[in-house]
Design a protein around this nucleic acid. Sequence first.
DNA 1: AGCTATGATTGAAA
DNA 2: TTTCAATCATAGCT
Length: 343
Amino acid sequence: MDDQTRMMTGLTGLGGLPQGDVGDPDSVRKQQSLGQPQQDIGDILQQIMAITDESLDEAQARKHALNCHRMKPALFSVLCEIKEKTVLSIRGVQEEDPPDPQIMRLDNMLLAEGVSGPEKGGGSAAAAAAAAAAGGSPTDSSIEHSDYRAKLAQIRQIYHSELEKYEQACSEFTNHVMNLLREQSRTRPISPKEIERMVAIIHRKFSSIQMQLKQSTCEAVMILRSRFLDARRKRRNFNKQATEVLNEYFYSHLSNPYPSEEAKEELAKKCGITVSQVSNWFGNKRIRYKKNIGKFQEEANLYAVKTAVDAANVSAQASQANSPATPNSGGYPAPCYTPDGRL
DNA sequence: AGCTATGATTGAAA
DNA sequence: TTTCAATCATAGCT
């Protein structure tokens, strides 16, 4: 800088124009007519270089004077061009970064969990689905359901308010920087492209903050979800009446203990449990029965007698001869039992 | 505390 | 998708 200054001073042989002259068209015209464009540019450059050595007031005045100089636009655009070709071409490499896959993942998850996206719909749908999968007695699941939904709504609210804050801060900061750069672009070579680039840099910085927000929101949802899933583990045994209904169906359909979808729905309704719980129960029952028929024989006999008695009652009431209640043909082996219900 | 019963989950198979 | 088989984790009993 010192060398440059000295060099330019040497070239022009001038220490700078009097302030009043710089912006004065007349003096410029005078100089122009003298045929000293080289010296003119040298002057300006020299003044720019020397500006930092001046007092604040002087520098301000000089700045203003230079801004009004007729050579300014031309010089400015040349400097912009030079800058564009040197500094910016290096940075140009990381231009146009593709949407962060991490952010996309987080976005998708937040959307799926109903944190982002449509206001109530997604959230309650997700919670409902989770609750449906959870099962449990209707009261339990609805309690957990509303609990889950409330917590999720809380997370959603925090997330949105934080996101709003973030967006506000981002746009405020961007505006601030843009204004600053625009302001500065009057005195130093800043091209609109460079401003754009700066905005992109700011947005990238802010997007990392956004990612943190999204990440911690995801974590919160995951924790909530795992707690919710843990709660599902805290099972309750089905009540006696429900177990009875299920066992009755099972043992009276021992030859083919695979209730149809409709039958499952009906059983679910009767027992006050979900269809998937009915499916679970039958899945467990089939496998456990098959594994140890002996253990279940007593139970089987009990229900066989029970259904036989029921059937008898029904047929007596209808005064009609109905088909036997236990169609044990194929499927799972039926227990052997005597009419008195013993082996 | 230890044991069994039982509802739920998971991964493979059909 | 449904079912099977193994397994988990808790309930509930002794």
